[in-house]
Design a protein around this nucleic acid. Structure first.
Length: 287
DNA sequence: CGTAGATCCTGTTAGC
DNA sequence: TGCTAACAGGATCTAC
């Protein structure tokens, strides 16, 4: 499940293999992958072909390629991997993947960029870029913890103002972006906080610690090339990450907590699985 | 407006 | 063995 570290690995792959090349031909397969592009897939194809890829950028779990089209406004090809999306750099004569949804061929006739996605939660769209360099459709996405615009003290304030549970707040991309179910559970475990704790019952220092852990665990994952679970996620080169061996809580039901030895519990929460230590992360009392 | 829950999707796995 | 149901979950939409 690509969260910030995995998406950043993909961004680096795009920077290495795609930036600086001219897109020649674009193919969109099926109606779903470009559903967020309201003008339709034909419009996306027409406006993407014969552009130069200038940079590969990221905010949270969103990626975008800045495209330079001579004499036209600067635009971005916005990408989201969803749960199972992959960007692959493949030779043009390689057989089509089972769940291939988009293909970008380049003027240099080198390797193609392919968007492959089994569960089709991912997608792409062409968007205008605002003066701050952000694609319009993701202006509501908050800076992630690695963004120079990230302001942890402001996030702490906003977090404590919310009237919800702390795990839900961590997953709220308009508060802080990039954190998904896996890293939320790891950050909560490190902080010794149960995800169902009301946000307004979190002290300022505790909130600060929690966000610091979220940033740290994602930084460590990034150093190791990202987390991979169901073999669907691979980076732009097709190599899986291996950080999953370092996870303390997520997916570890029944295994001993690395800190205290109590068996990690699994709970259903927000229609998701949540993993936590029953001793280090006591459930909040009702009321 | 803010929050909560439903929904999209398909390959894999668990269970009867 | 073969079928059905549960499961994985990010972001958006709708309801309250």
């Amino acid at each position: 499940m690509p969260e910030l570290p995995e998406v950043e690995v993909v961004r680096r792959g795009l920077a290495e293999h795609v930036v600086g090349r001219r897109i020649a031909q674009v193919q969109i397969l099926g109606s779903r992958v470009a559903r967020r592009h309201v003008a339709g897939p034909a419009d996306l194809v027409a406006r993407t072909q014969h552009t130069d890829v200038v940079t590969a950028r990221r905010r949270g779990k969103y990626l975008w390629l800045v495209l330079d089209q001579p004499g036209d406004a600067r635009q971005a090809l916005l990408l989201h991997l969803g749960m199972s999306g992959q960007l692959l750099v493949r030779p043009p004569d390689a057989p089509d993947e089972r769940h291939l949804h988009a293909r970008f061929a380049f003027a240099d006739e080198g390797p193609e960029l392919r968007f492959v996605d089994q569960r089709t939660f991912g997608g792409l769209a062409l968007a205008e870029v605002d003066p701050q360099g952000l694609p319009e459709p993701i202006r509501h996405i908050a800076p992630d913890p690695f963004d120079p615009a990230y302001d942890p003290e402001q996030v702490v304030t906003r977090l404590r103002t919310k009237r919800t549970e702390v795990k839900r707040a961590l997953l709220d991309q308009t508060l802080v972006s990039g954190i998904g179910n896996i890293y939320a559970d790891e950050a909560l475990w490190r902080a010794g906080i149960h995800g169902a704790r009301p946000t307004d019952r979190l002290t300022r220092p505790a909130a600060r610690r929690l966000l610091g852990h979220a940033r740290a665990v994602m930084a460590e994952a990034l150093e190791q090339g990202g987390t991979s679970f169901d073999a669907l996620y691979v980076n732009v080169n097709g190599a899986s990450g291996y950080f999953d061996r370092s996870l303390a809580a997520y997916g570890q039901e029944g295994r001993p907590c690395p800190r205290c030895g109590a068996p990690i519990r699994r709970e259903s929460f927000m229609n998701r699985s949540s993993f936590s230590c029953p001793r280090c992360q006591p459930r909040p009392r009702a009321g």
